[in-house]
């Protein structure tokens, strides 16, 4: 049964061996196999092709495949390392590993920086931050005057943009996060600590595979 299962999953485009992924991430081999069960579910929710499309990602996050969200888009784009419009299994595991409790803080800081660097300039620019604040207000159905939004952005920049050049570079970001560690709160998913225990429904195949290898 294990051999048949292994042959089947090797045909999935973008599939990578759990041992390889475990070697490069904070996950164990069994946890990568458990994640494969989750990946299969997500990647076949709309289009059964073994790849997570943006609509499937949105469906999983919002229970609605049409719900657009700037920050979900950014996370999808960062998971889609090859930038081909879909998330493959290896990309899924490597990216989720950033959110593992055991992953180095430096990786989380870098991922968050790239998340906020909307236009991939290597900086978080003032206009980008304002765009993100406005997107959040729209998502939350909150109404703040433009003056208040400007004040929030100005105040944040006055704390983060230490050299005053109108943009936040990586070093400034690191210092800002060090002074405001709660900014990384959403960069850790406690679920990932031991996914095989947290999600026992995924363990079946993992145990079969472990015993058959």
């Amino acid at each position: 049964m294990g051999c048949l299962f292994t042959k089947h999953i090797k045909q999935i485009p973008g599939y990578e061996e759990p041992t390889v992924l475990a070697g490069e991430t904070s996950f164990t081999v069994s946890e990568v196999e458990a994640l494969y069960e989750l990946f299969k579910k997500l990647s076949s929710s709309i289009i059964v092709d073994g790849l997570i499309h943006k609509e499937e990602f949105q469906l999983a996050l919002f229970k609605n495949s049409n719900t657009r969200n700037l920050f979900a888009d950014r996370i999808f784009d960062l998971f889609d390392v090859k930038r081909n419009g879909v998330i493959e299994f290896g990309e899924f595991v490597r990216s989720l590993s950033v959110f593992h409790p055991n992953t180095a803080i430096s990786e989380k800081i870098e991922f968050a920086f790239r998340l906020y660097d909307l236009r991939h300039t290597g900086f978080i620019e003032r206009e980008e931050l304002k765009e993100m604040v406005l997107a959040l207000l729209k998502e939350s159905d909150l109404c703040l005057s433009d003056d208040v939004v400007e004040t929030i952005v100005d105040k944040t920049f006055s704390e983060a943009d230490l050299n005053g050049d109108g943009k936040i570079d990586r070093e400034e970001w690191k210092e800002f996060v060090a002074r405001n560690p709660s900014l990384l709160k959403n960069m850790t998913l406690p679920y990932l600590k031991d996914i095989t225990i947290a999600f026992p429904s995924f363990v079946l195949y993992s145990e079969v595979e472990d015993s058959d290898i």
Binding site: L38, K41, L42, S45, L59, A60, L61, F62, N69, L70, F71, A72, D73, R74, I75, L96, F99, A112, Y116, L129, M132, V133, A135, L136, E139, S140, I152, V153, K155, T156, E159, A160, F176, N180, S182, L183, L184, K185, N186, L189, Y191, A198, F199, S201, F202
Partner: peptide, 25 residues
């Protein structure tokens, strides 16, 4: 009142809540 913009974004946006991925199990 002063709000840290990044604090607002990271704590409030549902787009960051990847725990929802696991609820689809």
């Amino acid at each position: 009142p002063f709000f840290n913009a990044f604090e607002l974004i990271s704590s409030m946006s549902s787009g960051f809540d990847l725990s929802s991925l696991f609820e689809s199990k």
